[in-house]
Design a protein around this nucleic acid. Structure first.
Lengths: 208, 208
DNA sequence: CGCAAAGATGCGTGACGCGCAAATTTGCTT
DNA sequence: AAGCAAATTTGCGCGTCACGCATCTTTGCG
C-alpha cells in the first residue's frame, strides 16, 4: 500500500480525482472559449477523455462542474484555519487562512493572478446560471469554515450564531473584494482589498 | 387614466403581477405537498390557470418560480431603508428595515410566522437545487440594498467597498438567524436572533 | 492467479427551456 | 363606440439534459 506522494488514497481514488479535475477543467476551458450555450456535456466529456455518461457520475450539471474548481479552492480557507496555531488570535488566523487561499492564484514571482482562475471567476460572475452554483460553492465552503471556527473557539455551532456569523463575514469580505477587483478598471492589487474588507468587518463597519 | 388603488400601473400590469404571483404561489404549494420531483411545470401552470408555455414567460425554471416570493420579500429591505428618515443612524435604519421585512411573515395578533412562509423557506433550505435560486435571490436583494446604502451614505458603490460590505453583512445576519431559527428544536422567537446577529456584526464580531 | 467490488459505459426515457408564429386580449385613438 | 396597434398568451417542435438501469471493464486484495 503506497502512502508516498503526500496523498493518502490508492490509485483508484487518485484516478477519480484526476477525472474529476479533468472534467471540471475542460468545462471551464471550453465555456470560456465558446460560451456556455455552445458547449454540450458531450464536448466536455470528450475533452476529458471519458464517455458522456461518465460526466454525470461526477457532476449533475455543467454549472456544477464549472464551480467545482472554485469550490475546491474555497474549501482551503477552512483547512488552512485548522492548520494555524491555536494560540493565534482568531481574526489574525482568518487573515492568514484567506491569504493562503488567495496565494494559489498568484504565482510567486510575478504577483499576477493566473489567467485560468480569473477567467473562471469572471465567467461565473457573468453568466447568471453559473452564479447560482458559484454562490452555492461558497456557501458550502462557509459551512466548513463555520465548523472550523466552532472547533477553534470551542463554541457549539448549534448553540450560538457566532461561528456562522464569522464564516459568513469572511465570505462576504472575499466575495466583495473579488467583485470590486474584477471590475476595477485601472487594475488594483487584490490582497489589499481583502485585507481592507476583513478589517472593516472585524471592526464593525464604522462609516469610513 | 386611473391612478386610484395606490398602484401605479394599468390593468395590464396588474394582471401580469397577479399571474406571476399565482404561478409562484402554486409552485410553492405543490412542491411543499408533493416534493420537487413530483411536480411538473405543467402542474404548476394548471394550478395557476394558464397554459404550460406561459409559465416560461414568467420564470425560466421551477426553482426560479419558487424563489420569486422570497425575492420579492427580500427586496423590501432596500425599499424600506429608503423610506427611513435620512437623519436616522445607518445601523438603526437597517435594523428597522430588516424588522419591517420580517414583520410580513408575522401576523400581528399571534406573533407566529405564517406557515406558508416557513414552509417555503424550509423547502428552499432542504432541496439543494432550490438553494441556488434561494441564495441568488438574496444576492439580488443585497445588490439593491448596497445601492440604497450607497445613496444614503453618499458613498460611491464603485469607489468604496463599504456599501457592499454593509449589505453583505445584513444578508449574512438574516440568513444566519433564519437558519438557526429553522433548526431550533425548542422553537425560539425570531426577531431577537436577527437583532443579535446584526448587533454582533455591527460591533465587529468580538468573541462572545 | 482469480474473485468481488467499484467505476465506466451505453441505452432509453421523461422533462425541460426556449424560439417561433398564430391567436387573443388590452389600451388608446378617432 | 368602433377599430387598430401593441402586448401577451398559447400551441408546436426541437435540441439538451439528468438520471435509472443493465452491462462491461478495471482495481485491489487474498
Amino acid at each position: 500500500m503506497n502512502v508516498e506522494d503526500g496523498g493518502r488514497a490508492g490509485l483508484r481514488e487518485r484516478k477519480k480525482q484526476e477525472t474529476r479535475i479533468a472534467l471540471s477543467w475542460a468545462a471551464v476551458q471550453l465555456v470560456v472559449e465558446r460560451g456556455l450555450e455552445n458547449v454540450r456535456v458531450e464536448d466536455i466529456a470528450a475533452a476529458a477523455g471519458v464517455a458522456p455518461r461518465t460526466f454525470n457520475n461526477y457532476f449533475s450539471s455543467k454549472a456544477e462542474a464549472i464551480a467545482a474548481r472554485h469550490l475546491d479552492r474555497a474549501r482551503l480557507i477552512a483547512a488552512e484555519l485548522r492548520r494555524r496555531p491555536p494560540s493565534e488570535p482568531l481574526w489574525e488566523a482568518l487573515r492568514h487562512a484567506v491569504a493562503a487561499r488567495m496565494a494559489l492564484g498568484v504565482p510567486p514571482p510575478t504577483g499576477a493572478p493566473d489567467q485560468q482562475w480569473v477567467d473562471g471567476v469572471r465567467l461565473m460572475m457573468s453568466e447568471p446560471s453559473l452564479m447560482g452554483e458559484f454562490i452555492k460553492a461558497e456557501a458550502t465552503a462557509e459551512a466548513e469554515l463555520a465548523a472550523a471556527v466552532a472547533d477553534r473557539t470551542g463554541i457549539d455551532l448549534t448553540r450560538d450564531l457566532y461561528p456562522t456569523l464569522v464564516a459568513g463575514a469572511v465570505g462576504v469580505a472575499v466575495r466583495t473584494a473579488m467583485q470590486h477587483w474584477l471590475r476595477a478598471d485601472p487594475p488594483v492589487p487584490f490582497m489589499p482589498l481583502v485585507e481592507y474588507a476583513l478589517d472593516q468587518l472585524a471592526r464593525g463597519l464604522p462609516l469610513p
